[in-house]
């Protein structure tokens, strides 16, 4: 092992059951089972449905990961698991499974932070992350700006959403436009033929006073309401709603604020690397605008491929490797799930 520990990572914080196996910075397996289809008709993730699905998927997903990686679990150097933040009941399924592997095979256990794992996964594609870096994590469950000073020990929150997560805003706007769940990919696709300047929707927390108090925070609830108002006014007047234009204008408002604040953080803290992760990082307009603005600002942009941006087990394994390499002490077997685990706690 030494420099290239073999680590299995388990992720169950939301609706994806992920088991990844990483050796050093090499991804060997990234097995995933998703219950997203079971949630679609509810328009959002139903915690009990997700927890039941995690239980059913857990052992088959572990076995699939081991088979894909071509390793014996007995050869693992450590087991890592998302301890939070996330849905408490869902997290607990993964935590219990990880403990069973760790205790059953006599391996060290690491309870890790989901957000830090989103940052760590980029190592698998782009090598070690230069520090300090700014990380922006945007998904259906979180929207955070972080200062990463040390992946294993030093992650500081700069800002977060005050209301809806970015991905949640996509889901809700998709719903009011009559598009299916999950809304992110639907809005992205619909927006492609639309005019992003058709409606100038509000950019939350970008006014002078807001910037003083919430420099790096986000707010998407007002934007969602603005879209709803606009659509309703159209319908009231008996005019058709230009779906593609509304989707493009909404999406532009979201990615404009996200990239503006991320780059402001880079500039103010004199950091020249920006990493974007989370499910919304798969959004094509976010990727394009971030690339454009980063290159203008001289900031290196790192975005993992879409499959590694969404929740998965590989990211947990990647963070586990970093913790083993940094010599961080393993977690005791009385590890619990912490749905509100602060980002400053990288390893429990």
């Amino acid at each position: 092992m030494a420099d290239h520990p073999l680590v299995l990572g388990i992720e169950t914080s939301c609706d994806e059951t992920g088991v990844g196996i990483v050796r050093g910075s090499t991804l060997l397996a990234d097995a995933l089972a998703s219950s997203v289809d079971e949630h679609a008709r509810f328009g959002g993730v139903v915690p009990e449905v997700a927890s039941r699905a995690h239980l059913e998927a857990m052992v088959p997903t572990i076995e699939r990961a081991a088979a894909t990686a071509g390793v014996r679990l007995a050869d693992l150097d450590a087991v890592a698991v998302t301890a939070g933040p996330g849905l408490a009941g869902a997290l607990l399924v993964g935590v219990a499974a990880a403990k069973a592997i760790a205790y059953g095979l006599g391996k060290p256990l690491y309870g890790v932070n989901h957000l830090a794992a989103h940052v760590a996964v980029d190592r698998l594609e782009h090598g070690d992350l230069p520090v300090p870096s700014i990380a922006m994590l945007v998904s259906g469950g979180h929207s955070s700006l972080l200062l990463v000073e040390d992946l294993a020990t030093g992650v500081q929150p700069l800002g977060a959403t005050l209301d809806d997560a970015a991905g949640e805003a996509f889901d809700k706007v998709a719903r009011l436009l009559g598009l299916p769940f999950p809304g992110g990919p639907e809005i992205d696709r619909t927006a492609r033929t639309g005019d992003p300047a058709y409606v100038t929707f509000p950019r939350g927390l970008t006014g002078h006073r807001d910037l003083a108090e919430h420099r790096f925070d986000f707010s998407f609830a007002g934007l969602k309401t603005a879209v709803a108002r606009w659509v309703e006014a159209r319908e009231r007047d008996g005019e058709p709603v230009p779906l593609a234009d509304v989707a493009a204008s909404f999406q532009e408002a979201v990615v404009d604020v996200l990239t503006r604040k991320a780059l402001a953080a880079c500039q103010e803290l004199a950091v020249d690397t920006l990493l974007i992760g989370g499910g919304v990082a798969a959004n094509s307009r976010l990727r394009a605008l971030a690339a454009e603005r980063c290159s203008r600002a001289g900031v290196h942009l790192r975005i993992p491929r879409p499959g590694l941006c969404t929740d998965n087990g590989a990211m947990v394994a990647a963070l586990g490797v970093a913790l083993v390499q940094a010599g961080v002490a393993p977690t005791a077997l009385d590890l619990g799930a912490d749905s509100g685990l602060p980002v400053t706690t990288v390893a429990v």
Binding site: L55, A88, G104
Partner: peptide
């Protein structure tokens, strides 16, 4: 109660699988 019930069942299944 489901949450605690699942802790036992997933522990048993996973331990059984690895052993």
């Amino acid at each position: 109660p489901y949450t605690s019930l699942r802790v036992g069942v997933v522990t048993a299944r996973t331990l059984g699988a690895v052993l």
